[in-house]
Amino acid sequence: MIPGSFNYHAPSSLDEAIKLLEDLGEDAKILAGGHSLIPMMKLRLAEPDHLVDINGLSDLDYIREDVGVLCIGAMARESALEKSELIAEKYPILKDTSEVIADPLVRNLATVGGNIAHGDPANDHPATMVALDAEVVVRGPGGLLDSGGRTIAIDDFFRGPLMTALAENEILTEIRVPCPNGKSGAAYKKLERKVGDYAIAGAAAVLNFDGDTCSKAGIALTNVGPTPVRASEAQDALVGTSVSQDDADKAGELAAAASQPVGDHRGSEEYKRAVVKVLTSRAIMKAKERAAGGN
């Protein structure tokens, strides 16, 4: 399959990339890992007139901790996240997520930034980042003093299927995840039909504890709605409990009720709700285990 014709641009700086987006307007798409965009172009589901390749912007390829926050540059590859010692040690939920995305060859090029900026509710990082209360840093045109940067809370980022809060002339440059604080744990569980498939459903759970009592919970779901779904009732139900198996199962039921799956070749609506219930409960129990020092 051959994609439609387009003009290829390879800017060497972020400013140059933003200038290109400004000049080319809605006819341009950003090419990062390309593993969502290129298949769509080959199927002619996307026919951009211009591609702005940001693979040359190596200064956006990083995973590092700043004060109280984990910063993931837009061009960090999934494989880098999967292999990072920092991630394995302090943010195992991100390793859980990366290693179930597509397959190792895809992950060698696919980026965390692209997984989010694409706005596909079937992608795995969106739910994880919602559960983690992440922020998305974007850059657009602006003066020298105001460099055109803004930060978008993750709950405001996803607007609908393949729709995000990004403007046409903006580039997602960084994802910021709060550092784990005190006794906490997090996990992501996904059910897929075969290696590399999109999720039948997925569930991310992030728990904070005060002693043995849950003080804060983040629960979000993959591929069971037009955007990643935050299961607020499930979160509220966990706070103040010791997160027993019964508490986790109850939260799973609330998450299933909050999900909005559509029946398709991956299963019926009823089946997907049942999967959400089980995965949510398992993610919660795994998060609890990790909060207690397990891995």
Partner: peptide, 12 residues
């Protein structure tokens, strides 16, 4: 790095 060459443009 191992990549799927059907999902990379030659110009890249």
């Amino acid at each position: 790095t191992a990549v799927k060459s059907c999902t990379v443009f030659a110009v890249q």
